[in-house]
Design a protein around this nucleic acid. Structure first.
Lengths: 346, 346
DNA sequence: GGAACTCGTGGAATCGATTACACGACTCCG
DNA sequence: CGGAGTCGTGTAATCGATTCCACGAGTTCC
């Protein structure tokens, strides 16, 4: 592969001049410029990004470490991150932590070794020493969706509290009183917050959230299934199961079906994180939708601000309730416009 | 960030010795080794992968350019690719082409500039000059899922012909005679092949595939919707719609529902590419499942073989039919075990 | 007319690693 | 005892770019 030296030789100039042309530095004569460009063309020369990075100490690359690529929420997040990054002249390397702290650390270490310019993380746990070190060492970092409390890193996330209040209002309006939640890992902020918000919302209606109605999940479908089976085995099973993410909701749906029970007639189901597929499930699932694309874009902008020396901003965007049929027929005032079909559902 | 020089100074040896310790080269004294390792520890030194790559001309990175990350099939493919690559000591940079040749070229160029060791591509079109140049220049490359005909690059894919024959047999057994297909882009091999295999399978039953029953889609949900509406507007609409990928099947399902029609009573639906969600749709969708994970792993192995100087092998694995309820009640002998729940469905 | 500038250019240092080569200290063996 | 190996180590070249500095030629201005 041709190097800058070959181009210089072909154009009859020094490598310095070639470099200047390539980085359109002003002081290059028109003559030299055309000769260099011609040489670049004939040799099919492309600058070696590795060499350039070594010299400039910039890779124009962002690292994105997410908890689970197979979760459509994170897939969409990854996609919007890549789009915004590309628009700003950066590439993205994605690391899939699969909800495993050791894998998360593997990816963070790998990305740091590659000298990425900045790191976007949705931490699987509350306190990776490796990440704390990286922050302390000055690595530009932004948390997205989840974060690590007490760490001085901007956070881009959505606040689901209002939407969870709306959900509880909706459920209460349908006559449900025994509400259970499949929680996420206690080590994640989203895992904790959603339970706290749910409990708080219930209290507003004078409802309690007994321990038996809090199932410990791990954001994966299988745990949703397991926890739901536990709920159904209770002497007094809940009337509603609220899953703290979309995959656990799917597991819950499986568990309910496996018992030959029907949603919503026998038990109602709702989920945090809306995804296109929820429109097509049987029944369509009521969910809380995050502005995922906007979160990804805002996170990239915050990170690039930090990298390029501008002050980065934390961003919190509201989530919103999308009512479908999995909790029973909604009363008319709760009808929402479906984000996928753009048609209102009844 | 500490460099190899700092480590050398701290340990009181030369950089050469440090490098030897790090790459566990045999001729280093035990004494020097322990001093170097101690220095590495106290400084928290991590080798700069950029510098190492420049010198060794190896990045230990693979590029993966796929057509659409939001498609669960490709998400799963990407995941298995990353896993196998990690096991073999490589990282993966994913580029999402979004079915756009220009974006595909952007990513290929970007990856080549970064001097990735090899490229895994699922081409969106039949003949990117850029990729042809890269092949000619000797870039290790492997096609996965789709390929470019006439290019000397190993292909790892699944053969759906037998499964499509099984599908047509299943449909014929249920009494369906007017079968239509939503095709993928003609520029993709998978787009063409699935239509050809479908037509061939129909012929075995003396059935025809008229032009009116071939709709041109682009592997995206919206095109599935559009094409299906066209089918439903025909004077004699088909009894079955077979979508050449999962997203178009979803679009088709939407279109059918929007007319107030039911699957499978009013029209049957089947899809190429099975995904976990198809178990949960209303009704569960009959689909042809590819061994996606195995494809991704085989593709990585082929590529790494090529990179490390071993002869790479093309791989073709069979796809298989998974019968669910979207084409009507299957007769008992067609019952298949569901890959997600591992329970047989009736 | 000469000092002061500007402009275009090239030489060479530099980024952080790897590695060929040289070299001194030992060991071994005839 | 001396030549030939072996072993551990350091010096320096190298990968492919960027960029500081110096320098010659041409301009400008007093």
């Amino acid at each position: 592969m041709a190097s800058i030296k070959d181009v210089a030789a072909e154009a009859g100039v020094s490598v310095a001049t070639v470099s200047r042309v390539l980085n359109d530095h002003p002081s290059v004569s028109a003559d030299a410029r055309t000769r260099v460009l011609a040489a670049v063309e004939t040799l099919g020369y492309r600058p070696n990004a590795v060499a350039r990075s070594l010299r400039t100490d910039q890779t124009h690359t962002l690292g994105l470490v997410i908890s689970d690529v197979m979760n459509p929420y994170f897939t969409e997040l990854a996609r919007s991150v890549e789009e915004e990054a590309r628009a700003l002249g950066y590439s993205v390397i994605i690391g899939n932590a699969d909800e495993r702290p050791d894998l998360q650390d593997h990816h963070v270490r790998n990305l740091l070794d590659r000298r990425i310019d900045g790191l976007l993380v949705s931490p699987t746990d509350g306190g990776s020493p490796l990440m704390l070190d990286a922050v302390r060492a000055g690595t530009p970092m932004v948390f997205v969706d989840r974060w690590m409390p007490g760490v001085a890193v901007p956070v881009v996330r959505s606040d689901g509290r209002a939407a969870i209040r709306d959900l509880v209002a909706h459920l209460h309006g349908l006559g449900h009183r025994r509400l259970a939640i499949i929680a996420g890992p206690a080590a994640t902020t989203t895992g904790q917050e959603r339970v706290a918000a749910f409990r708080e919302a219930l209290r507003a209606y004078g409802l309690d959230l007994p321990d038996a109605y809090i199932g410990q999940g791990d954001f994966q479908a299988e745990s949703g299934r397991r926890v739901t089976e536990g709920f159904l085995d209770l002497p007094e099973p809940p009337e509603v199961v609220f899953a703290a993410d979309n995959l656990m909701a799917l597991g819950a749906l499986d568990a309910v079906r496996a018992r030959g029970m029907r949603v919503p007639q026998d038990i109602a189901l709702a989920a945090f994180d809306d995804i296109p597929w929820f429109v097509h499930t049987d029944p369509p699932i009521t969910a809380i939708a995050q502005p995922t694309g906007e979160l990804g874009r805002a996170a990239v902008r915050a990170l690039v601000d930090r990298i390029e020396g501008r002050p980065p901003e934390s961003v919190t965007l509201p989530a919103r309730l999308v009512v479908r049929r999995s909790c029973g027929e909604p009363s008319p005032r709760n009808v929402a416009v479906d984000p996928v079909t753009n048609r209102s559902e009844s």
